[in-house]
Design a protein around this nucleic acid. Sequence first.
DNA 1: ACAAACTACCTATCTCTATAGTGAGTGGCA
DNA 2: TGCCACTCACTATAGAGATAGGTAGTTTGT
Lengths: 197, 197
Amino acid sequence: MSLRYALLALLTSRPMTGYDVSKQFSQSVAHVWHAPDSQIYPELNRMERDGLLESTVVPWGKKGTKKEYAVTEAGIAAFREWMDAPIEIRRQREPAYLKAAYLEWAEPGAARAELEQFRDHWTEHLTMLEATRATLVDRSHPTLARRLEHYDANQWDRIVRYKIFAYDGLIDQARAAVAWAERGLVLVDELEGSTVD
Amino acid sequence: MSLRYALLALLTSRPMTGYDVSKQFSQSVAHVWHAPDSQIYPELNRMERDGLLESTVVPWGKKGTKKEYAVTEAGIAAFREWMDAPIEIRRQREPAYLKAAYLEWAEPGAARAELEQFRDHWTEHLTMLEATRATLVDRSHPTLARRLEHYDANQWDRIVRYKIFAYDGLIDQARAAVAWAERGLVLVDELEGSTVD
DNA sequence: ACAAACTACCTATCTCTATAGTGAGTGGCA
DNA sequence: TGCCACTCACTATAGAGATAGGTAGTTTGT
């Protein structure tokens, strides 16, 4: 159910088409809540049906049209309500840690390969998070820039710092994951013996 | 699909009834992969149908019976295959971090309450993880003890250290979450002003 | 003039997960 | 004798999410 609020969060910066949303998503909210467009389009429809969004049809080229969604008053209210409600605690679902606990069943080579894959994935993710964090710090992040336009300049610092705070948390998690995988590689080498050719 | 492998992992320690599984789950594998019994029972059935488990009906009291599941050769093979396959990378789905990024929309009181709730949840989780880790270190963990019986004593250290390694990763994540929430509380106080009565 | 890449939006289907039950047997204790 | 907590096993249903498509118009480069 958080997808709805992730979309509201994004759309509070400016009105967007479904396509914009699905593109913007990957550069901001997706770091925190991934969704494919096959989920985004139907959800936007449902949100309009529920009165959280309203759409205007905009011409596009000669014959084409596109639908731009804007958050309604009811949408703002729903978002505020969600913000003030207790957070849903996520269930633990971590296949990587599950596997790690049973690494004695893996081939030594496979164990190493998986830890490397895990480390590389998180390293890449970390790089992206740090890059995005930097665009928040210097306020060059496009969605953030559009968002700040609605606010008085004396509010900017407050808004930006919450976003940086969120990214800091994600960066911490990513760094912890990378460090853990690296310790895992050392452990595998120690326990399985180094079989490097 | 990892539920299947989480169940296999647990059942490699010893044969169990569905009820045992759903109880043991919460004390071990659930730290890494939570599942309610309404998922466990049907999955055990499907795994038997697919030949990964076989069940024997055991009498229980005067009239009652229970069904004990044991991993088959095919089950072991499937588990090994999964262990050697690349890990599925989980999508980011973190409502807490999503909210954190938009904390300017929350009431200051609500923001504080949520961060406290988040911190408390992870603190509690951390305590449980550390307690379980300790039972792995001293090998008093019941499922681990049963598991080690299948192995030669010179393998014990290897097996135990992988489990400790997995818990260390979870503990790192939990600690990072707690520390982040604490920084968040300081930030909220700074930005929203201290409105403590 | 045409292809390729991009914008725009949507559907179908399947699996996974969550929630909330049902119902019967057992063992202890008051 | 009756009650309660626990053991055991399962079902029904709805919603969320993943995967894999489809269709139509637009822009850009050659």
